[in-house]
């Protein structure tokens, strides 16, 4: 874990939009594949891609390899730094009072997204307690 930010927020004032981005914890993680000293591993519990600070040489290969720019080099530690999901309880989610950030299983997140897109399309799901299974 480094000192710099591992989640990035950009505000587009032209379109009045706010975007957040952080490591996607890729299944095929190019940062992990390119690391010459195998300092990047997958946490068996959280599936997060994590950097072992003891092993990392600070060469920056992973920074070049990441297609999204979410791998960074910490100025102070001179080590690769990225989102490690805070060991399974991400601080950014705790701190996001606006409930814009969520952490959970992929299907629970899909359900949230489904509800939102239903709403945009004007589909209102039957409330669960009134659903008689038809």
């Amino acid at each position: 874990m480094g000192w710099g930010p591992n989640i990035f927020v950009s505000v587009d004032m032209e379109r009045r939009r706010i975007y957040t981005g952080t490591c996607l914890q890729c299944e095929t993680a190019l940062c992990m594949e390119v690391c010459p000293v195998n300092a990047i591993k997958r946490d068996p519990e959280t599936s997060a891609v994590i950097v072992d600070n003891e092993t990392c040489l600070g060469c920056g290969m992973c920074v070049s390899a990441c297609p999204f720019g979410y791998m960074n080099l910490d100025d102070f530690l001179r080590k690769a730094t990225k989102c490690d999901l805070c060991g399974g309880n991400p601080k950014c989610v705790q701190m996001c009072m606006a409930k814009a950030l969520h952490f959970g299983s992929i299907n629970s997140l899909a359900e949230r997204k489904r509800k939102q897109s239903d709403l945009r399309l004007g589909i209102r799901a039957m409330p669960a307690d009134k659903d008689d299974g038809q």
Binding site: M97, A98, K99, K115, L119
Partner: peptide, 19 residues
């Protein structure tokens, strides 16, 4: 509110989720 009353934001998010 995100800056001066952060707890309101969760309520706005819930309201917006309900349309």
């Amino acid at each position: 509110p995100p800056v001066c009353h952060p707890p309101f934001m969760a309520e706005f998010a819930d309201a917006k989720e309900n349309g």
